[in-house]
Amino acid sequence: MSVYESKSNKKSQFFQFVLSFIFILLTMISLIPILHIIAISFSSKRPILSGSVTVFPVGFNTEAYTKVLSNSNFIGSFLFTILLTAGFTALSMCLTILAAYPLSKKGLKGKGIIMTLFVITMYFDPGIIPKYLNIKSLGLIDTVWSLLLPGALSAYNLIILKSFFMGIDNSLYEAAYIDGCTEFKALFKIAIPLAIPAIATLSLFYAVSRWNGVSDVLYYISDSNLFTVQLKLKQMIDAIIISQKEGTSVVNLVAENIKSASIVFSMVPMLIAYPFIQKYFTKGIMLGSVKG
């Protein structure tokens, strides 16, 4: 018996060792592309051209970042995107809370119909062009509203917040109503304070989608003052593809470090937010899966 046990323990230890090794390897592989781009952004031109930069900078310098920071065009759209993201998140949360709270109430008449109307939008997408024509007929093309309003209320997030509100103990409300508390007061004094974790999660959902979103900017915006940082990056990346195809790759390769620095720079807000995102998104996924 003890022989069997020690044998199986050894086998198990070996299995654990191999498994750890594999996961460490996979983790490193998934980190390499990001490390590579960071390394290039801090490397000097010659090593980049000769291809000797892998995951560590060669000929360390911060010249690319000096250039990115002095590019007022890029920094301008970076700051604009931060403001846009903040505004979008605030607006979206207001709308989502205002919709989720009443719909979480059991006695509300017409609740079923309204929910169905929201759920339909999750499964039927009218497509790019009708949305574009709609924005156009509202006169929102080339305005900041075209980037703020259309995505401001996601049915998916609404359902998550609704089920969170539904989990709040009803007796809390009952007591408040007896004391003459109105629904608005109940929302601000009871529901919102209790739903802070869910609200934080959904705010992150909204913020990430706005920060990363590029297609609506591409569809609705032609005024370069309203370009988000993602679209600016896209133009930068595209310019390099074209010139490589024309056989002038050597000249443009010099820009590789600037391109990489811009990419890294625009990743920074996400990397700063990542510990929170990481903590809350996992919770958000659980919230989403609980609803079934």
């Binding site: 983790t27 590579h36 590029v214 990346i237 390099i240």
Partner: peptide, 25 residues
């Protein structure tokens, strides 16, 4: 824990950034 946190990270990068990284790689 570490492998979860790191493997989850690319999910939060925009496709513009990913396309830029893909080009470099």
């Amino acid at each position: 824990k570490t492998s979860q946190v790191i493997m989850y990270l690319p999910h939060f990068l925009s496709w513009v950034i990913i396309a830029g990284i893909v080009q470099q790689v």
